[in-house]
C-alpha cells in the first residue's frame, strides 16, 4: 500500500531523512518511532505529498507520489500532529468542504458524517465555528474528516495527542477496522506502549536513518519495545 524507497530529504546541509526504505502492506498497522527531530514528520509529510524530497521514491498503492500526486492523495487520509483547521468554518462546513474536495457522494457523506461524529460525540458541536473548538475537538474533527472518503491508507502524526481516553480507544478500534477492510495505517508515536499493543510492524528511525524495522516480535525480541528503543537510541546500531 505504501512503499518508501531510498527516501532522502535535506534541509540545507542537514539530512533530515537519509536513504529510508519502508514497505507498508495492506492490512498492516505500521508504527513509526523515533526521538524528536529524528525525521518522522518529514517522512510522513513526504508520503502525503506535502513535502518534496531530494532522492528516492514513494509509491501509494503502486502510484508514484512524484509523478501523480493527486491520485496518491485521493487514496490517503492525513492527520497531522497539530490540527490547524479552518477556524473560520463551522465543523459541518469543514466536513462538507473535505467531502467536496474528495468528491464524496451525498448519501455516503451523510452516512459517514453521522456515523463518525456520533461515535466521537461531536455531532452537537458541528454547528460551532472551529475557532471555538478545543484541541481535542479539533483532533476529533480532523479524524472524522480523514475518514469521510473511506481512505485506503491513513497516515497519522502523533494521532493520540490531545485525545481523551474514550476517543483514543475509539481511534484504535477504527485503525484496526480499516486494516481489516483492506486498508493500511502508518503512524508516528512517542507512546511506545500504544505502539507495542497496536502495531503489526514497527520502524525505528534515528538521525534520519532507519535503525530497525520489522514485525513487533522481530524488533523487540524478548524485551519490551521501550527497552529496545532506548537501547538503540543509546547505541544507534544500524539495521
Amino acid at each position: 500500500m505504501l512503499r518508501i524507497e531510498n527516501l532522502t530529504k535535506t534541509y540545507g546541509d542537514k539530512r533530515a531523512v537519509d536513504d529510508l526504505s519502508l514497505h507498508i502492506q495492506k492490512g498492516e498497522i505500521y508504527g513509526f518511532i523515533g526521538h524528536n527531530g529524528a525525521g518522522k514528520t518529514t517522512t510522513i509529510k513526504a508520503c502525503c505529498g506535502i513535502l518534496g524530497f531530494d532522492a528516492g521514491e514513494i509509491y501509494v498503492d503502486g502510484i508514484s507520489i512524484k509523478t501523480d500526486p493527486l491520485s496518491c492523495k485521493a487514496k490517503i487520509a492525513y492527520i497531522p500532529d497539530n490540527p490547524d483547521l479552518y477556524d473560520f468554518m463551522t465543523g459541518i462546513k469543514y466536513l462538507g468542504f473535505i467531502a467536496d474536495i474528495f468528491g464524496v457522494g451525498k448519501n455516503e457523506r451523510n452516512e459517514r458524517i453521522g456515523k463518525y461524529s456520533d461515535m466521537f460525540e461531536l455531532t452537537r458541536d458541528l454547528a460551532q465555528p472551529i475557532s471555538a473548538y478545543s484541541h481535542g475537538m479539533k483532533q476529533k474533527l480532523a479524524i472524522i474528516s480523514a475518514l469521510i472518503h473511506d481512505p485506503k491508507l491513513v497516515i497519522m502524526d502523533e494521532p493520540f495527542v490531545g485525545l481523551d481516553p474514550k476517543a483514543s480507544h475509539l481511534l484504535k478500534g477504527l485503525m484496526r477496522d480499516i486494516c481489516l477492510g483492506g486498508g493500511a495505517i502508518f503512524f508516528s508515536t512517542h507512546v511506545l506502549e500504544v505502539a507495542e499493543k497496536l502495531c503489526d510492524k514497527v520502524a525505528i528511525i534515528k538521525g534520519g536513518r532507519l535503525i530497525r524495522s520489522g514485525t513487533m516480535e522481530e524488533v523487540r525480541g524478548d524485551s519490551s519495545l521501550e527497552e529496545v528503543f532506548l537501547e538503540l537510541e543509546d547505541g544507534g546500531s544500524a539495521f
Partner: peptide
Amino acid sequence: RARYVKKPVKAGSADSALLKKEFSHYISS
C-alpha cells in the same frame, strides 16, 4: 452555543468548495 441538528449535507464540486472556502474566510475575517 449553536447546537447542530442533523440534516442532509449538500454535495458540490471541488471548484465550488474552494470558492466557498475563500468566501467564508473573506466574510469571517
